[in-house]
Design a protein around this nucleic acid. Structure first.
Lengths: 187, 187, 187, 187
DNA sequence: CATGAATGAGCGTTCATTCAT
DNA sequence: GATGAATGAACGCTCATTCAT
């Protein structure tokens, strides 16, 4: 019973690496090879390629949530957001292949509406923090999906900048957060 | 040769529709079918699928630029940005398939570095406007690529919101712009 | 009326060059391009690709015959054969593309039995010379086709050697002829 | 994996038959059909069509060598050559499709220089026999490639004659050998 | 006649999935 | 379970040939 889960993990890790390297069109054979198993064995653990990719999408989304939202210290709202911001950028910087896979998957049409909804539910707690920060600002009262997308847009811009130019990571981290805070707060 | 350009256009339009409907992995056969021509005929007008997609990418990028940046009225910076913002969201709302295609293409690795550079050059005038608006704000002095990505992130969030919920288009338009202006300006 | 023949010639010359460069699978489009005409124009001068290749085969075969067998001086048999041998090797050395095309065509199955028969008839006079030389030797009385093939085999070996190593052309010329003469004569 | 080699063999046999029947441009689909397998299955056993054809070329070349050069009896040079000559003609007569395939392949440009070199190395022992027989004759001291080509040319002429007119096989066999021996020996 | 765009069958190759071992 | 050979539909692309201009 421990083995099946371990095999599943190995396949998912291999899938991350393969996706990051070759895009969503990476073959299941390439994933199997990277996992060190036979081509056909993947299908003992996942119903289909689509099933595997959806499972991976959910795992990665949950991983981000855990990395970013676990044990947020009791503190002022700005300090809490700063913690979240920092963890988010750090996760992206430390796991570029995972970030790339997650992004490729979220843009691919193999990810079902159900998977997307699950992922969104997952991140609700995080968005809610930003929602509180938006009180009185221009996005006060806007739907969560909109607010979340705005925040995500700014965060992805910072992640891309850091990945492109890691030596100025601190500068992008600080400027990005200042911009985001500005964006949320009343003028 | 009554209209070699007309056939090219028909293929590109069919490609937009097919990409929007089926993703980047849409087959050239599907595009040909939608264009009402034989499969092989595509290759009289484009060297390869990659060539077709790059041409489409450049056309769409130029189309956005023309729609958004043409004849910006002499006015205060805020009014100019508001014009740009409005035209951008309008283009997206009016051409959802084109927007989706452009996004899918820009995330795909068939688009060459050269195409991307051409597109970036194209949009330089627009980004420069935002750069001027950022003076004194948290993104003052940041690289153009970072600033552009932040602005794009906010704009895409607004476009998605409007597409999801067109009845509140005005609200997303106004709140998005206020947030963007806040983000750029000094606290 | 002069023009049609000129165009035909141009196409055949282009076909030779294209065949030599790209093999029998060379496209008619490539030949048309090399001839400086439109793809479709080839089919105003030749019924089909197969028709073109058969015509080329016959032209080349006739060209060899003319180059090798025209005006053979009255002389002893050995001297006559030496003239033929020399002209044959010279033609091959001077027209490698034509030789290669002729060989490719003769091995291809687009050349009909009729074309082959025509070419064989053409060369009968030449083979007859060798037949006379074979009198009393081991091939005396053998069918013309067999005798011709043997002679051809020796000649092609010499041509290949000269093409591979042109500096020793004289040596291959002389040794090849001596071997051929030995082969034909009584022990 | 009951017999991975068996499938490989079946494909190679089907390739021989298909090549002999349709020429080098025979499709892999036709080979698969003749082998009774799916089109795609060929590519589990061979990397590509070119890989398959090169493998076939090497197998056939080795097969000829084994059939012709194995266990040559200790005897006078003439008797040894006669054994080789006989085995060579017999192999060709018994395996016309294999001979035709080998010839088509050797003239095709899908066969790599490496394959050709391997095949040449393979046959060195045979050519060396003819080289010894050439001592004192017109081809004494000529490069192996030239000598080999001459011998091959005479042999192929005999094979063709036998194939065309099997009833006189003995006559072509004897006359061909006499001619070859004459060719090699001093006048 | 010349043109070259259009055709559509066919090519070599890939790949998710199945299944006998 | 694990294996990997087998499948066959699909893919991007080529090409001889046709035909409206």
């Amino acid at each position: 019973m421990p083995a099946p889960q371990a095999m599943r993990r190995r396949i998912l890790e291999a899938a991350v690496a393969t996706l990051a390297a070759e895009g969503v069109s990476a073959s299941t054979a390439a994933m199997a090879k990277r996992a060190g198993i036979a081509q056909g064995s993947i299908f003992h653990h996942f119903e289909s390629k689509a099933g595997l990719l959806n499972a991976l999408y959910l795992e990665l989304a949950e991983e981000v949530r855990a990395a970013v939202l676990a044990d947020i210290p009791a503190a002022g709202l700005r300090e809490q957001l700063l913690v979240v911001w920092g963890r988010w950028l750090d996760w992206a910087a430390e796991h570029p292949a995972r970030r790339r896979s997650l992004m490729l998957l979220s843009l691919s049409d193999v990810i079902t509406a159900e998977s997307r909804a699950g992922s969104a539910r997952n991140q609700a707690a995080g968005v809610e923090l930003f929602q509180r920060a938006a009180a009185g600002g221009p996005l006060d009262g806007q739907p969560i999906a909109f607010l979340g997308a705005v925040v995500e847009g700014v965060a992805y811009a910072a992640m891309d900048a850091i990945q492109r130019d890691p030596e100025r990571a601190g500068q992008y981290h600080a400027a990005g957060f200042a911009a985001l805070w500005n964006l949320l707060r009343p003028a």
